[in-house]
Amino acid sequence: MASIRRPSFLILLALAPAPLHGYAVIKEVARLSDDKTRLAAGTLYAALDRLSDEGLVQVDREETVDGRLRRYYRLTDPGIAALAAEAEQMRRDARMVTRRLSAARPVGAPRPA
C-alpha cells in the first residue's frame, strides 16, 4: 500500500473516534497538527471525495442545521486498516531513524583508529 499523504492521514485520524461533519474535520485536523495543517474547505472536500472514491471514508449521515445541509463522514473498515497500516509504517520508520542516529558519531568526534 502506498503511503498516505499527511493531510489525508490527518483527515483519517480526525475521523477515527467518531463521524464528523466537514467543519469539525477542519478544526480537528488543525488541533491534531498543533495548527501546522490548516485545510481550506475546498481542499478538505476534494480530499474527502478522493478518500471516498478509494473506499476509505463514507457519508455516515446528513442533517440540516440552520437551513444548511451538514454531511457527516466516517471511516470504513478499509479506512481503519489503512490508518493502522500507516501508523505501523511510521513506527518502523521511527525505529530505523532511532537506530541510525544512535550509530551516528557526534560532529567533530575523532575517527576511530
Score class of each variant (00 low, 15 high):
77 D>K: 14
70 R>E: 10
76 T>W: 02
53 D>R: 13
84 A>C: 04
56 L>N: 09
76 T>I: 09
56 L>W: 14
56 L>A: 07
68 R>Q: 09
76 T>R: 06
48 L>P: 01
61 R>T: 01
65 V>A: 10
77 D>T: 15
60 D>K: 02
80 I>Q: 10
84 A>V: 05
62 E>H: 11
88 E>D: 14
56 L>Y: 07
61 R>C: 03
83 L>W: 07
70 R>A: 05
84 A>H: 10
71 R>F: 13
81 A>D: 15
55 G>S: 03
82 A>K: 09
72 Y>T: 01
49 D>Q: 09
46 A>K: 07
71 R>C: 05
83 L>N: 05
57 V>Q: 04
77 D>C: 15
69 L>N: 13
52 S>C: 11
81 A>N: 12
68 R>V: 01
49 D>P: 00
84 A>Q: 15
68 R>L: 06
80 I>S: 11
71 R>D: 13
63 E>D: 13
67 G>I: 03
88 E>W: 12
75 L>D: 14
66 D>L: 15
47 A>I: 10
51 L>F: 03
52 S>D: 12
80 I>E: 15
68 R>S: 05
71 R>Y: 12
57 V>H: 00
46 A>S: 07
50 R>P: 00
60 D>M: 00
52 S>M: 08
67 G>R: 12
48 L>S: 04
73 Y>T: 03
57 V>W: 03
69 L>V: 14
82 A>I: 00
80 I>P: 06
70 R>H: 09
83 L>S: 14
59 V>E: 07
80 I>W: 10
83 L>H: 11
52 S>E: 14
59 V>P: 08
54 E>M: 11
59 V>S: 03
73 Y>D: 02
88 E>P: 06
84 A>P: 02
84 A>Y: 04
66 D>H: 13
81 A>Q: 09
58 Q>A: 04
69 L>P: 10
72 Y>Q: 01
49 D>T: 05
88 E>G: 11
72 Y>A: 04
56 L>R: 09
75 L>Y: 07
61 R>A: 05
77 D>H: 15
81 A>G: 11
46 A>C: 02
83 L>I: 03
56 L>C: 08
57 V>G: 02
66 D>V: 06
55 G>V: 01
70 R>M: 12
62 E>R: 12
66 D>N: 14
75 L>F: 11
67 G>Q: 09
79 G>M: 00
81 A>F: 10
68 R>P: 01
63 E>Q: 13
68 R>N: 08
66 D>S: 14
51 L>G: 03
75 L>C: 13
86 E>W: 03
78 P>S: 14
